[in-house]
């Protein structure tokens, strides 16, 4: 792990690309599905199919590190004001209620940019695969975080 809030060099930033996460598992538990549907106003289905937001929840809960650890890995902390960038969810196969999925993934890009108003910031993107018990990839979730780099 790297120390938080230290501004990385370009080389350090680019060395993040390809870094694999520990990975883990995520169980789509019925009680969690019910409560989530209630929160976001989705119908309570009886066909065993989970809301597509569970592609995201499974990926983020199962990739093996916490968000704070992700920030640290990217030479930042929550105090630096990181922002969520883009979120891309591919749903190849709906997640099934009661099933346990394997999650794996890695950092796919890390770039430094300069904004006229925002100053220097880094964008770190990562991709997570949610794999069904039969080995098929059910979902691919790609996210990015924006890290302001105030010197």
């Amino acid at each position: 792990m790297t120390s938080a809030t230290q501004i990385p060099t370009i080389e350090e930033l680019e060395s993040l690309v390809g870094r694999q996460f520990p990975g883990g598992t995520y169980a789509v538990e019925p009680w969690r599905v019910w409560l989530t549907n209630d929160v976001i106003g989705a119908p309570q289905r009886t066909d065993g199919i989970a809301h597509p937001m569970f592609c995201y929840y499974a990926a983020m809960a199962g990739f093996g590190i916490s968000i704070d650890e992700m920030f640290t890995l990217c030479y930042a902390s929550a105090d630096d004001g990181p922002m969520f960038g883009e979120c891309d969810i591919q749903q190849m196969r709906p997640l099934e209620i009661g099933a346990t999925y394997t999650v794996r993934g890695e950092i796919t890009s890390a770039v430094r940019k300069q904004g006229e108003r925002t100053g220097t910031f880094d964008i770190v993107a990562f991709q997570l695969e949610v794999v069904a018990p039969d080995g098929e990839v059910s979902s691919v979730v790609s996210n990015s975080f924006i890290f302001p780099r105030r010197s």
């Binding site: 989530t36 929160v39 976001i40 106003g41 989705a42 199919i49 809301h51 597509p52 937001m53 995201y56 929840y57 922002m83 969520f84 960038g85 883009e86 979120c87 891309d88 969810i89 591919q90 749903q91 190849m92 709906p94």
Partner: peptide, 30 residues
């Protein structure tokens, strides 16, 4: 929570399309 906001959009799509499982891909910015 940001994911809640994305969930509302998925619900809108699911209502229209006959089920949110019909969403193959969604890419958004907050």
């Amino acid at each position: 929570q940001g994911p809640n906001n994305l969930g509302y959009v998925m619900n809108m799509l699911g209502d229209w399309a006959g089920g949110a499982e019909r969403i193959q891909n969604i890419r958004v910015r907050f």
